[in-house]
Nucleic acid binder design. Structure first.
Lengths: 157, 157
DNA sequence: TATTGTTATACTCTATAACTATA
DNA sequence: TATAGTTATAGAGTATAACAATA
């Protein structure tokens, strides 16, 4: 694989864009006012997409099964997640959000969006349009990356 | 403080931009090929900006003094950071990067930039220009936020 | 015998409290 | 007496290994 050095402007953009993203993420993630822990938040997000088994969750979040078992146990304790046995395969544990879990997730999402929304309101309509296009572009990059990742995992299996 | 609800387009942009940033950050931060731990990386970055004392580092990274003491101890063990007593105040420990530390930092930075750079090269010049402007815009937002933060901390002291 | 999930145990990072050295 | 940093100890999260239940 030829690893051509990018031109200086692209290299600088790669650096600056990465740093900007990481700073935004850090700002949001470590906001002292967050009501639930980051790793709990991710689990709620995944279960809101669709009910899943413990093993599926662990694979998606890239943590061990015991770790995920613990997190799910805590979320169940809090009343945000519900465990149910699979009717066909007694080994599986079907996990889903409770109404409380959905409420907490929605509240946390709004809270996390609030910081960014407040900043965007201070911009011109023109700047917001620019950011809209840039966001779509980055989403495209991430989507292509995920597709490539899936393909790589598929062929190595 | 009036907490006006943003218009739907701005709310959607806030959400999508935040998610995109967090995904980029996650992708880079948890890349399995990273050579040093995230919290060690930040310390090297701060010491590359300028030599600092342990207390300064702890305040900047928002971590307790004992935690920072431990991290610095590990980095010193690895030969990346050097401790030196302050000539005027014997209580202070002056910290700085060793040549090895600078090399590791540079290598890690390049590694972290590489993923993004490779993706940007697949884009058109036009799209890269768009991202350059968007990056500058986000940097402006973050800078304003930091300034506001400093002001808030200043007045509460 | 293989697979899903849980329990047992250990390690890492971080925190607060207690301590040492210097001002 | 106050401050900078380190050492002691505890808490939270994650990992691997061992185990229980089911296929």
């Amino acid at each position: 694989m030829p690893d051509a050095t990018p031109d200086p402007a692209t290299a600088a953009l790669a650096h600056d864009l990465r740093i900007a993203c990481m700073r935004v993420a850090r700002r949001v993630r470590f906001d002292a006012d967050n009501t639930i822990a980051p790793h709990h938040f991710s689990v709620l997000v995944r279960l809101h997409e669709q009910p899943r088994t413990l093993g599926e969750l662990a694979a998606i979040e890239q943590v061990s099964a015991p770790s995920m078992s613990r997190s799910v146990g805590q979320l169940a304790e809090l009343g945000y997640v519900e465990r149910a046995p699979d009717p066909d395969d007694g080994r599986l544990v079907r996990l889903s959000l409770t109404p409380d879990g959905r409420r907490v997730l929605e509240r946390e999402r709004e809270h996390r969006d609030a910081w960014m929304a407040a900043r965007l309101e201070g911009l011109s309509e023109r700047d917001r349009t620019l950011l809209r296009r840039a966001t779509d572009l980055v989403e495209g990059i991430l989507e292509a990356d995920r597709a490539q990742d899936r393909a790589r995992r598929g062929e190595s299996r």
